[in-house]
Design a protein around this nucleic acid. Structure first.
Lengths: 186, 186
DNA sequence: CCGAGTATACCTACTAGTAGGTAGTTGTCA
DNA sequence: TGACAACTACCTACTAGTAGGTATACTCGG
């Protein structure tokens, strides 16, 4: 693995645990095993790192959604996989979605980072809306309502479920919070 | 208003905007108009401030829930008021719930602060569960399911809705995310 | 004159970021 | 093929500024 990727992995990990204002170049340097100054070679400023982090996160996320679409036919299966993805990302209650972690530190981010964050959220909502439209056709989700509303509600629910589970450091809180939605699936 | 209260107000405001790791005694000092060192007279350490902040937040929240119970009879009216409370707390997309803001910085908090945070969340869930039990009796919430599941789901939804709205700095994103739930009320 | 509250003046540890330099690799051209 | 230039990836040593926190001195109302 090249150093840049290693740094991104490390930064994503620690950012999702402590938030944007909760990690420093010194933390990364210690973890990766190079000097703090050397990180500036790969990411001149922390703002550059933040942008790279969100960009990579967004593309990984988009790929994951594409894989779900390839793997599952039914809207219900796709949505179950979506929720399961957020559950797995929790890492036992230790990490939350990068998007959630960065949203709290919104005012520390540059405009570019905020744009990337916005794009990420937009893509998620588009996929969800598309999937709830499918649900209205294939009937796999019980009493499915307006796709755009369902999409926004589910995004909020999984992000909130992660936050609550992170607060308690317990995955079971995520499960409890998502149970109601999952009970609408067959 | 006494200085301690003034400091708590200021700290709550900035903590809900930037998170626990996103504000400093220097910020508070500047805002309140006393020197940084003088804040240590009121709150010897930042950990003490954090605990005081959560304690006050929890009791204010509990009072607000009691007022809702006094004001409204129907479960649906109570839940609508609950969601509206979180909407108002958003302050136009600038702030989130203190509990959400602190959850991200979980590892920076002391055990005492974490216990207080846990208690706060517990009280919220209790009230919601109790209210969903009422809903099952008075029938004011359509297809109401298991109260504990409904409670966890709604808490996650409003917290997630705040987070999403904060990311975009738009209250309308909160409204969109809570629309689905509110449509179950008369 | 006591003490609550604030101030000055400091501390150590850490923040992001910069300056200047150095091995080792890679590309290019006579 | 050898020589020289350029580049990559790191280093040590530093900057200015901020973090939370402390010791001690002042001030002013009861």
């Amino acid at each position: 693995m090249d150093r840049r990727t290693e740094l991104l992995n490390c930064a994503e990990n620690v950012a999702r645990r402590h938030g944007y204002d909760g990690f420093s170049y010194a933390d990364l340097a210690k973890e990766v095993g190079i000097r703090k100054a050397s990180i500036h070679y790969h990411f001149p400023s922390k703002a550059d790192l933040a942008v790279a982090l969100i960009e990579r996160y967004a593309s990984t996320h988009a790929e994951a959604l594409a894989v779900i679409d390839e793997t599952s036919e039914l809207a219900s299966d796709r949505l179950a996989a979506y929720v399961q993805g957020y559950r797995k990302a929790l890492s036992g209650g230790a990490k939350i979605c990068l998007c959630a972690a960065f949203s709290v530190s919104r005012d520390s981010l540059t405009d570019e980072a905020l744009r990337e964050l916005d794009a990420f959220r937009g893509n998620s909502l588009n996929w969800l809306e598309k999937t709830f439209q499918l649900a209205n056709k294939d009937g796999s989700v019980s009493h499915s309502a307006e796709p755009a509303e369902e999409a926004a509600a589910l995004l909020a629910t999984v992000e909130g479920a992660q936050l609550v589970a992170r607060a308690a450091n317990k995955v079971s809180d995520f499960d409890q919070a998502t149970k109601l939605f999952l009970s609408r699936l067959p």
